[in-house]
Design a binder for these strands. Structure first.
Lengths: 159, 159
DNA sequence: TTGCTTCCTGAGCGGTTTGCCCAGGAGAAT
DNA sequence: ATTCTCCTGGGCAAACCGCTCAGGAAGCAA
């Protein structure tokens, strides 16, 4: 994975405010050569600095307006099994192994509360899960965004 | 926000496996008319079904390989203040109001453990924060992805 | 200083894609 | 039957893309 510099960050910020701008438009707006923008974008793509396109898809637009987090405690023996089973549930959109209260932090989306109930039961019933705790997301105070980081990066002379 | 159907999901899945495919290439691959793909993409963009472009940026590529979650309990009076202050910290990439143990779930990224320590202190010191709990992400078992949801959507005749 | 490397720039080229238009037809709903 | 929506196939000019090349600026090492 390539480490992004200030120029990359500027390009990404410009793309953020107009995700469908052409390379020519970006170059003009950022006062760079078209070649530069093109080369940077290609490098960012190929080096894996950009994640999957579907990260941009809003689950709500797919009919899943509800979001929740489950904290799971796993048994030492069957811990790996749990992750393997849970990964297969489509409504589970993210699984993280963490320190602290639980062993696994799981993000799920659901169509409605009944659906959420069904999914949490699925997760709880997975092998190796010994304790769970569910938090429903009431409001996205600040949706996921790295804008602040990008903006800071643009002013940095170097890391 | 427009509700996506099976055709939209198919387009998004194709984009996922080749994020830089042209509209013509997508149309050919999906056996659709170019006009259809073009119209769908435009509608998805304009209806807000797609989030910001920078959601695709890997924080690690920006120099922030560490990720952590903080659960915050807020005082009833100054709860709003806390969110306003915390939102300004660039390393805070997501803030969610939740039910359960805490009132706020905060996702942060950091350059290293020392940096993480600094940021958590910043958050803890915010007005209205009465109790915190931090979990460091050890491993991304399953990075954020709605692929499963998209795939299911393609087989649905309708919701 | 000299050389080496890396990166940005401006220019050019052909082939492709885009955005837009239109007319026709299939399917669902009224 | 009529209306509405959507997909399709065709066509057009303009714009863009991917690629190449030569020149120059900046950084680094010897």
């Amino acid at each position: 994975m390539r480490s992004l510099d200030a120029t990359d960050a500027r390009i990404l910020l410009a793309l953020d405010s107009d995700p469908d701008a052409t390379v020519v438009a970006l170059a003009e707006r950022l006062s760079m050569s078209r070649n530069t923008v093109q080369a940077r974008l290609r490098r960012m793509r190929e080096s894996g600095s950009l994640g999957a396109y579907s990260r941009r898809v809003e689950p709500a637009a797919l009919g899943y307006p509800l979001m929740a987090f489950m904290t799971l405690s796993l048994s030492q023996r069957e811990g790996d099994l749990a992750a393997q089973q849970i990964v297969r549930i489509p409504e589970v959109v993210e699984i993280l192994a963490t320190t602290g209260d639980g062993d696994l932090l799981v993000r799920i989306v659901a169509k409605d509360t009944a659906d959420l109930y069904r999914i949490t039961n699925l997760v709880v019933a997975s092998a190796g899960v010994v304790r769970t705790s569910t938090s429903i997301v009431l409001h996205e105070v600040a949706p996921h965004s790295v804008d602040g980081l990008l903006r800071r990066h643009t002013t940095d002379a170097r890391h």
